[in-house]
Simulated assay, not measured.
Amino acid sequence: MIHGLVPSSITMIICWAFLLIEALLLVEVNVALRKKKRKNEEEDELEVISIRTMAQETLGEWGGTLATVTYVFLGYTSMIAYSSKSGDILFHLINLPASISGIFFTSLFTMLISIGGTRATDQVNQWLTTSMIGLLLAIEVLAVVSEGWAGLGGSGNWGKVPATIPVIIFSLVYHDLAPVLCAYLGGDLTRIRTSVLLGSLVPLLALLVWDAVALGLSAQSDQVVDPVELLMRVKWSGVSIMVEAFSLLAVGTSLIGTLLSFFEFFKEQLNNFTWQFPSTQLPQGNKLFGLRKWWGRNKTLTAMTMAVTPALFVSSTVPDAFSAATDIAGGYCMTILYGVLPPAMSWAMLNREAEDPEQKAFSKARPLLLGVGLFACCIVIEQILQDILLFGSS
Rank of each mutant, 00 (worst) to 15 (best):
V6Q: 09
V6G: 05
I14Y: 07
C15S: 10
L19Y: 14
L19I: 15
L20Q: 12
L24I: 15
V27M: 02
K36M: 07
D44A: 02
E45G: 02
R52H: 07
T53P: 07
Q56D: 15
Q56F: 03
T58C: 06
T58W: 01
L59C: 09
L59D: 07
E61K: 12
T68Y: 01
T77V: 06
S84I: 01
S86R: 00
L90P: 05
F91E: 05
I94Y: 11
S99M: 00
F104C: 06
T106D: 04
S107E: 04
L108A: 13
F109D: 01
S114N: 04
I115P: 00
T118D: 04
T121C: 05
V124Y: 01
Q126G: 02
L128G: 13
T129W: 10
I133L: 14
I133V: 15
L136E: 04
S155L: 05
S155F: 07
S155Y: 09
G156C: 02
G159W: 02
K160P: 06
K160W: 05
K160L: 10
I165N: 05
I168Y: 13
I168R: 04
L172W: 01
Y174E: 15
D176Q: 14
V180M: 10
L181G: 00
A183E: 14
R193G: 04
S195G: 12
V202I: 11
P203N: 14
L205H: 04
A206K: 08
V213I: 09
D222N: 14
D222P: 13
D222K: 12
V224E: 14
V224P: 10
V225Y: 12
V225M: 12
E229Y: 07
E229A: 09
M232I: 05
K235F: 08
S237H: 05
S237P: 11
I241G: 00
A250C: 09
A250R: 00
T253A: 06
S254K: 14
L259I: 11
S261D: 13
F262Y: 10
F262D: 11
F263V: 08
F266A: 03
K267L: 06
Q269V: 13
Q269M: 13
N272C: 13
F277E: 10
F277Q: 06
S279K: 12
T280W: 01
N286L: 10
R292F: 06
K293A: 14
K299N: 07
L301W: 08
T302V: 15
A303V: 00
A307E: 00
V308K: 02
V308L: 09
A311M: 09
V318C: 03
S323H: 11
S323F: 08
T326W: 07
I328S: 05
A329H: 00
G330Q: 02
G331M: 09
Y332H: 06
C333K: 08
C333W: 15
T335N: 12
G339A: 13
S346I: 09
N351I: 10
N351C: 14
N351H: 14
A354Y: 12
P357R: 03
E358L: 02
P367V: 04
P367I: 12
L370S: 14
L370G: 14
L370V: 15
V372F: 04
V372I: 15
A376W: 02
C378H: 12
V380I: 15
L390M: 08
S393N: 08
S393L: 00
